[in-house]
């Protein structure tokens, strides 16, 4: 997958941001390292409406980082910067989070970590049949509807 919209600098920043949004878990690397960055870049190519909020959020993160680049901040300070941006512009930031989740949770390896062994079709799921005996109490209720 090649970049479409984001510059190398923006891609690098987004990777770091995504790693804070969805950190590593068990054997799974954090979202950015896992490849969510390029997936989001592809979303930006396909859906131009996403560009403004995501680019706005990334710029705001750079600005809030101050003289020290986000990449050079320690983990606690990175989270602090992200919280500040979230509070200042919740709309743009929530879109950044949403697209990160979109890229992360559509990956088969992430789904497998949740016990999902494939998409819903064609297999579906086999569930127990309805047991009418469970209705015994309700069947004995008086009629609840008004005739008219």
């Amino acid at each position: 997958m090649t970049a479409h919209i984001l510059t190398p600098e923006e891609l690098a920043l987004l990777t770091l941001v995504q790693n804070e949004l969805v950190p590593a878990y068990g054997d799974l690397p954090a979202a950015g390292t896992l490849g969510a960055t390029l997936t989001v870049d592809a979303y930006l190519a396909e859906q131009p409406r996403l560009r403004r909020p995501l680019l706005t959020a990334l710029r705001a993160i750079e600005v809030r980082s101050g003289k020290t680049p986000f990449a050079e901040l320690d983990a606690g300070r990175r989270v602090e910067v992200l919280r500040q941006v979230e509070n200042a512009d919740p709309e743009s930031f929530s879109e950044l989070v949403k697209q990160t989740y979109n890229a992360y949770y559509t990956r088969p390896d992430v789904q497998a970590s949740l016990g999902i062994d494939g998409p819903p079709q064609p297999m579906g799921f086999r569930l127990p049949a309805f047991d009418e005996s469970r209705l015994a109490r309700v069947r004995a209720m008086e009629k609840l509807w008004r005739d008219a």
Binding site: E20, L21, V22, P23, Y25, L82, S94, V97, T100, Y101
Partner: peptide, 13 residues
Amino acid sequence: PVPWGSEHHEALR
């Protein structure tokens, strides 16, 4: 939405 950050995975699960 499930919160982002260090609590994310436990909250999602």
